[in-house]
Design a protein around this nucleic acid. Sequence first.
DNA 1: ATGGTCGACTTTCGA
Length: 269
Amino acid sequence: MKLRIATWNINSVRRRIDSVERFIKEYDIDILCLQETKVHNDSFPMKAIKAMGFEHVAINGQKAYHGVATFSKIPFSKVEKIEFCEKGDARHLSTSFITPSSGEVTLHNFYVPAGGDVADVNENEKFKHKMDFLAEMTDIFTKQANDSSAILVGDLNIAPHENDVWSHKQLLKVVSHTPLEVEKLKILQDSMDWQDLVREHIPTTEKLYSWWSYRSRDWTQSNKGRRLDHIWVTQPLGNKHTNMEIALAPRSWEAPSDHAPIIADFDFS
DNA sequence: ATGGTCGACTTTCGA
């Protein structure tokens, strides 16, 4: 059983429904996790997604902001969502599916708060929310068994390594790359011994980004990116992933998202 | 010279 799983911050699923269709066709995606769908569940383009061949659709949306969705060509054995920080935000969705080699695998889809502009929990409520959110994630995973088979994907809004940003020095005080965020992300990663699947395939000695600001005339020329999007796996799945790609082409499609999709291939035979 | 550009849903915020 080979599965191609992708994660993509789509920045409005309705605005980019054509790009979603093009992406899943050109890249032959089996399970797609979206973040920032920006649509209430009542207005979600369910018909269009099902017409693309995704019979199994899980959504957690709210009006105008945030929102996550997971589409699959194979059935879910379980669907759950966790509300973080008692804010009523739609930032998490987990779906599980059954595999021959690893039994039930749980796929977490996350949209971590961006955190605003000021990297100080006392001065910036949004940054405090981001830190609280990471702490809650850590608590939840600390309580789970390390030997369970799980995948965590999404926009974590943190670029941890020096080569996950275009300039380590210039971004040290910029939210997404501050030492405090990097430390908290590491603690979260250690909570369940998560492996950074993307960096398993491309070492930290190479620059690697998944997001480029809209505020640049030519993102390819300036190439001032950050690696905000991630795919992690627990130890039991450490030998189940066969390939990985950050798909750069969709960042240049018409009316693109500011994030590139990340694709991971698994063999659960 | 705190800019530059998106999306949602109002005239401004969040990213």
